[in-house]
């Protein structure tokens, strides 16, 4: 059985299912209670679970730091940070404690926490509400980084994240919350972390993209005069390197697309992994189509900043024509 759901409904439904399944889950964050979250991801949850859903004061370091305590005790915190751009306020807790608890206690403690945060650009939002900092989190050993791109994957990945014994930052592309509707399995649905999705098979060139960029890529590949394989890693860390390498060994060409700035972005890491293990299969240098190395602009300039159809197409052509 499957209902046609939007991403935001998939988030909500998954939180509800998981809370019913496991009474150690605690959901909290700014405005997640009566207001149901600024995007309504937690709507109604406080009525069902008044003792497991809490509004938080405006204190991100506190929200994440408290989670370390909850997790150490044995509860499973699923906090929401109102926008990913405000995880910076909690970054010391994430880096120094959340991600290291297992390792620094030699496994005596661990931090089973899923930090949800709206993520990415494209919704004409205020300053600091459009960041794509996935590479920053991926640079934190011990932390898993997930970006779902479809309603069904949202359910499968969020379920897997909440059940994962290690901490996960779960980045929900705001632009996709309500833009797509698709069947989402009603029964238990788990998409294992670390497994990419080959969204579309092709022979000539591999395009790797996640979040909103995955959809932008899919929207234009039909017009490209080549057979394009599209891979959505879904989990940024740990990255499904093998899926990307398998594809590149077949196509010999690769383009990586992301909204985040280019320098030290995930495209650089993916390129390095391809160079490490599949260099001799390459017929062209891996092409990066990314945001520029500038602060994410306010919305009047955001469409100039993020990769658009023309830039993505040009990247694919460069890979094909090298």
């Amino acid at each position: 059985m499957a209902n046609r759901l939007r991403t935001i409904e998939a988030v909500r439904g998954t939180l509800r299912d998981e809370m019913a399944r496991d009474d150690s889950i605690v959901v909290y964050g700014q405005d997640v209670g009566r207001n149901g979250g600024v995007f309504r991801a937690t709507q109604g949850l406080i009525d069902e679970y008044p003792n497991r859903v809490y509004d938080s004061p405006v204190a991100e370091a506190g929200i994440i730091g408290l989670g370390v305590g909850l997790a150490a005790y044995g509860l499973k915190p699923v906090p929401e940070i109102e926008f990913a751009g405000f995880t910076y306020q909690a970054f010391h807790q994430i880096q120094q404690h959340v991600a290291r608890l297992r390792s620094r206690t030699r496994g005596e403690f661990h931090c089973q926490m899923t930090i949800r945060a709206p993520f990415g650009g494209g919704i004409r939002a205020l300053e600091h509400h459009s960041e794509s900092f996935e590479a920053g989190y991926a640079h934190v050993p011990g932390l898993k980084v997930v970006v779902p791109s479809t309603p069904a994957d949202t359910k499968g990945l969020l379920t897997a994240s909440i059940r994962d014994p290690d901490p996960v930052i779960f980045l929900e592309p705001t632009r996709l919350y309500r833009s797509i509707r698709e069947p989402v399995p009603e029964e238990d649905h788990v998409v294992p972390l670390g497994e990419a999705d080959v969204v579309r098979e092709g022979e000539d060139v591999t395009v790797v993209a996640w979040g909103a960029m995955r959809h932008r890529v899919l929207g234009l590949v039909d017009d490209v005069d080549a057979s394009v394989e599209v891979i959505d890693p879904r989990t940024i860390a740990p990255l499904d390197t093998d899926a990307i390498l398998d594809s590149v060994r077949k196509t010999g060409r690769c383009v990586v697309v992301h909204e985040a700035p280019r320098t030290a972005g995930m495209a650089a890491e993916i390129t390095a992994r391809i160079n490490d293990r599949a260099l001799l299969y390459l017929e062209a240098p891996v092409q990066r189509v990314t945001g520029y190395d500038v602060p994410y602009p306010l919305f009047a300039r955001e469409s100039a900043y993020e990769p658009d159809d023309d830039r993505i197409r040009a990247g694919i052509e460069r890979a094909l024509e090298f």
Binding site: Q30, D31, G33, R34, N35, V38, D55, S56, P57, V58
Partner: peptide, 8 residues
């Protein structure tokens, strides 16, 4: 603070 009253 958005929906959260001062007492909370």
């Amino acid at each position: 603070a958005i929906s959260v009253p001062r007492e909370k």
